[in-house]
Structures are given as structure tokens and as C-alpha cells.
């Protein structure tokens, strides 16, 4: 101990500093997880990796502390003879560690919030959710009637599946769908409904979803199929005009909107909040000025269409608007088996 090289003591100090920072990061992840805030940053399907990482950080930190103790207790024990990449000057090492400590401290001490309308303005609100399904060359025309001879066979095979599905679908949609007319799912109705929802191989799942939604008294744009339902409504917009739709989300406005309209939407997150894309519906209501940006609302109304930037998009003419608490998990996620 007495003959311990100053370099060893310095190295031990750095090992401890690093271990402290690693444990700090690991603890931050555990804190986010236990308070349920991890999904404010990371999509649920990715959280497992972050949790494993916190464990790995912890293990790495423990080895660092062990190494520090070894260096302190046994003089000149640096077994690889080279120590590690320890910064040599105090200023440099202070800078390097502060680069971790300051953000970590700020992250810990400031409240965890969500991104809202300010971010939506930067990212650009998607008002035509079916855009990604449309062939670029067709400029949206194809989406109107994509069904042709070849896809008709696929659809007729699907009749049975879709009718039984629609009865199933009526059950979980909790609100007004409790009174679906039982006849609506019968075979002749299914025949005519198939004609209303032509599809090709890319839009078949949205057409099937559209058929289910079409038979509901009130279409609830539910959280777990938010993007998918908006896409189906947008893709077969003509069919849904006049239908009653209920949707939740935050209020968003920008200067392209006229006075009595705003947009109600949510962020769809694929991996982490950095890749969030806002999806929304244009709504019209009486006295819209009472609802400020980022207010969460549940709105029910009749679906209509309007023109925005030269495109035909859906417009919800709200008849009922209520303020709600922001959802526990503010984001929606792509649902691949809807």
C-alpha cells in the first residue's frame, strides 16, 4: 500500500468514477422502468434491450469497482502492464465525465414529459394515413378502386373469414357497438360489402378491417389499432362518409388551418420517441378556441371530407367533445396483425 504508484491510484480513481456513472445510467433505466416512464422514450418492443443493457452496465460497473480495489490493495498490480485508457490530464478527464454526469443529472431531475404539438409542427402532421399504401405513379387514384379481376378471387375466399371476424370485432369495441344489428353480418350483406371494399394484395388487410368497421354503429379509433383504423378509413374514405367516428388525441394547430378547424392526433412510434410521426384527423367543432394546443380530447362526430393542400382528406364534424386526461402511454405503435 505504501509503495503504490501514483498512476495506480489515479487509475483506481477513474475506475470508480466510471463505475459510478455506469451505475447512474443503469439506475436511471431502472427508475424509468419502475415509474412506467420508459415507454415515453422507447417503444415497448425495444424496452427489453434497454433493460438488458442496464444489467450489463451494472455488471461492467461491478468489475470496474473490483479492479479499483485490486489496484488500491496490491501495489503495482496492473497485470496487463498498461492500465487502461485513462485520460491523463485532470481537465480532460473532468470534461469527459461531465459530458455524462450533466445530462444524466438533468435527465434525472427534470420531469419526464411527452412530445406534443410543437414537435408535431416540426415533423409534419400526417392527415392521409393511407398515403404509404398508394402507388406513387397513380397519385392516389389507385386507392379508390384497387380491386381488379385477380384480386376478386382473393376476396371471395375471404367472405367467410370477414363475416365471422366482424361478429367478433363487435364484441371488443366497447362503446355504442354494444347494439350491432345481428343481421348485418349475414351472407348477402357480406356479398355487397365486398364490392364496397375492393382490395389488392397490399390493401387486403385494410379492406378486411374496413369491412369490420363499416358494420359498426360507431367506429372507435382505438389505441391499439390507431394508425391501422385511420389508414382503413382514409383508404376507403368514400364508404365511411356519414359514419359516426370516435377518436382521442391531442389538439394540434398550425397556420395553414382555418379558424374553426384543428387537428386531433397522436404520435406513432416505431422504435424510440425520436422517430415519432404524428397521425391525425382534421376536426371541426363549435367554439374550437376553447381547446388549446396539446389539450387531450375525445371527440365523436360524423365523417366528411375536405380538401387540404390539394388532397381530399377526412374531416370529422364533431357533435360531442370532451376533455380527457392524456393517455398513460401517449404514443401509439404500429400493429402488424390487426
Amino acid at each position: 500500500m505504501k509503495h503504490m504508484a501514483p498512476a495506480d491510484r489515479k487509475a483506481a480513481f477513474h475506475h470508480v468514477m466510471r463505475a459510478a456513472i455506469l451505475i447512474g445510467i443503469a439506475f436511471y433505466i431502472v427508475y424509468l422502468q419502475t415509474t412506467g416512464k420508459l415507454t415515453l422514450y422507447i417503444a415497448p418492443r425495444m424496452t427489453i434491450y434497454v433493460k438488458i443493457a442496464s444489467l450489463a452496465l451494472y455488471v461492467t460497473a461491478v468489475f470496474g469497482i473490483y479492479e479499483a480495489f485490486r489496484l488500491l490493495s496490491k501495489p503495482s498490480a496492473a497485470d496487463c502492464g498498461c492500465s487502461h485508457a485513462m485520460p491523463s490530464s485532470t481537465l480532460r478527464s473532468a470534461l469527459a465525465y461531465l459530458l455524462f454526469i450533466i445530462p444524466l443529472g438533468i435527465a434525472f431531475l427534470t420531469p419526464d414529459t411527452t412530445i406534443g404539438s410543437a414537435m408535431a409542427a416540426n415533423k409534419g402532421m400526417t392527415l392521409s394515413a393511407s398515403q404509404s399504401l398508394q402507388q406513387p405513379a397513380d397519385d392516389g387514384q389507385a386507392a379508390e378502386l384497387p380491386g381488379t379481376e385477380e384480386s376478386d378471387t382473393a376476396i371471395s375466399e375471404d367472405i367467410d373469414a370477414s363475416t365471422t371476424d366482424s361478429e367478433l370485432a363487435a364484441e371488443p369495441s366497447d362503446t355504442t357497438a354494444a347494439t350491432p344489428s345481428p343481421e348485418s353480418g349475414s351472407a348477402p350483406a357480406a356479398d355487397s360489402i365486398d364490392a364496397l371494399f375492393p382490395s389488392d394484395e397490399y390493401t387486403i388487410s385494410y379492406a378486411n378491417l374496413g369491412k369490420k368497421l363499416y358494420q359498426q354503429e360507431t367506429i372507435v379509433v382505438e389505441e391499439k389499432r390507431y394508425m391501422e383504423i385511420l389508414t382503413a378509413l382514409d383508404l376507403f374514405l368514400d364508404r365511411f362518409v356519414g359514419k359516426t367516428v370516435t377518436i382521442e388525441g391531442f389538439v394540434y394547430r398550425d397556420d395553414t388551418l382555418t379558424n374553426n378547424a384543428f387537428i386531433l392526433g397522436r404520435f406513432a412510434v416505431s422504435c424510440c420517441a425520436a422517430d415519432a410521426m404524428p397521425y391525425g384527423v382534421m376536426v371541426q367543432t363549435d367554439h374550437p378556441e376553447q381547446y388549446g394546443n396539446d389539450t387531450w380530447l375525445r371527440m365523436t362526430g360524423t365523417l366528411a371530407t375536405t380538401t387540404y393542400n390539394g388532397n381530399e382528406i377526412m374531416l370529422l364534424q364533431a357533435s360531442k367533445t370532451e376533455k380527457i386526461e392524456p393517455a398513460d402511454d401517449p404514443y401509439v405503435y404500429p400493429n402488424y396483425d390487426f
Binding site: L40, I42, V50, T113, C271, C272, A274
Partner: peptide, 14 residues
């Protein structure tokens, strides 16, 4: 500020 923190933390964690 909220946006910045959210994006920063989410990129770091990701």
C-alpha cells in the same frame, strides 16, 4: 425543452 429532452434521452437509450 420537453421535446429536446425526450429526443435526447430516447436516442441515448435506443
Amino acid at each position: 425543452w420537453h421535446n429536446m429532452k425526450t429526443v435526447f434521452v430516447s436516442i441515448f437509450l435506443e
